[in-house]
Design a protein around this nucleic acid. Structure first.
Lengths: 195, 195
DNA sequence: GTCTTTCCGTAACGACCACTACAGAAAGAA
DNA sequence: TTCTTTCTGTAGTGGTCGTTACGGAAAGAC
């Protein structure tokens, strides 16, 4: 049975994880040092290592938690009756999310991935992005009947994935919520509707 | 008079700068260490500091050289007779450039900028990107008569800037030249042509 | 040749990196 | 109370960071 034995933890693990998420989100994987992290989390290095393993494991847990909160947004948007409406919802939902003042701007998986020297972390984040792109492609392919003939769902998914990445980068550069919605609206004009 | 006195430099400064450019392009500013740079440049740290100042000055020179070779591409594209053709040319030219096998993928200014802890470097690169965006907005505004009424040139420029950033990120993720051209073609469908 | 100037390689500087050995503190169990 | 277990803070570990002091080497000037 999981009775608590020994000295109890003096900090809130979830709260510490939240603060680590925020720092990784702002600074990326490598430029957020253990000293920075422990300062933000309000704990000392041994507590971090005891509770989370090492820096890489902490980052993995952060990304897992991020995906857990981000994927419902994506799933809900993609559940729209048509692929066009699904993409429209997704882009505008992300415009809101990327500029939500309650957390750092942009997408953690997109912005924390660029310029990461650690090959494992790099590959892991790339796989996450590829998975999102595949989910978009699947949603488009499932509604292929409404598309202009000759439209390749994977090609179109690549375009919208690029738009999402561009929105994230713009958000990190300080773009406003209105500007991101304008990007989303412009991107939807590129939808290849069957005439 | 600039007569060469003392022991002559034993390496080609331009070639060393080229190799530094390649490394910064692949790894970004902070994750490319002096040890990495000197190894790639084939010189020892004191030679680097004597020839280029410090890491930051070397990076500035790299970015300046990069912009010097990149801006003609942009200027030529934007010189097209219509704004629409200008953007079309620009996007497809960048699709070729970002996947040119003779140098690292994507755009140095875009990819080296994300997750930079150094505030000065970050601000400097952001200013470069804003300048490109402004150039696009100016070209669009100059051809406003051909646009759909109610189109905001700055808004449209933000969209195409986001597409360019997305293309760069996709290129870094290993997207092929064909995929990038497909993104460019899709993005041009969003052009707000006057009916 | 000798002097001056500039570059080169060696070998280090202090500061920071991710990470941890260790001892004391705080809890339940006996 | 005493023992065991687990967490805590202090104070480090070896390694790497950007940067440089220093002495020898290679050139023109005299």
């Amino acid at each position: 049975m999981p009775v608590t034995r020994g000295r109890p933890r003096a900090f809130d693990r979830d709260e510490a994880l939240r603060r680590a998420t925020e720092l990784f989100w702002e600074r990326g994987y490598e430029t957020a040092s253990i000293a920075d992290l422990t300062a933000a989390m309000g704990i000392r290095p041994p507590s971090l290592y005891a509770a989370f393993g090492d820096k890489r494991a902490l980052f993995d847990e952060v990304v897992a938690g991020y995906k857990a909160t981000a994927s419902p947004v994506m799933e809900e948007a993609l559940a729209a009756p048509t692929a066009r409406e699904a993409l429209d919802r997704l882009l505008h939902a992300l415009a809101d999310d990327y500029t939500d003042p309650s957390h750092p701007p942009g997408c953690l998986v997109i912005s924390a991935a660029v310029n990461v020297a650690d090959g494992d972390v790099r590959a892991s984040l790339r796989a996450d992005r590829e998975a999102s792109k595949a989910a978009i492609a699947d949603r488009i392919a499932a509604d292929a009947g409404r598309l202009d003939e000759g439209t390749d769902p994977k090609e179109l998914a690549t375009f919208y994935a690029a738009v999402v990445q561009g929105m994230s980068t713009q958000a990190c550069d300080g773009a406003s919520r209105e500007e991101l919605h304008a990007i989303a609206t412009s991107a939807m004009r590129a939808w290849p509707a069957r005439p």
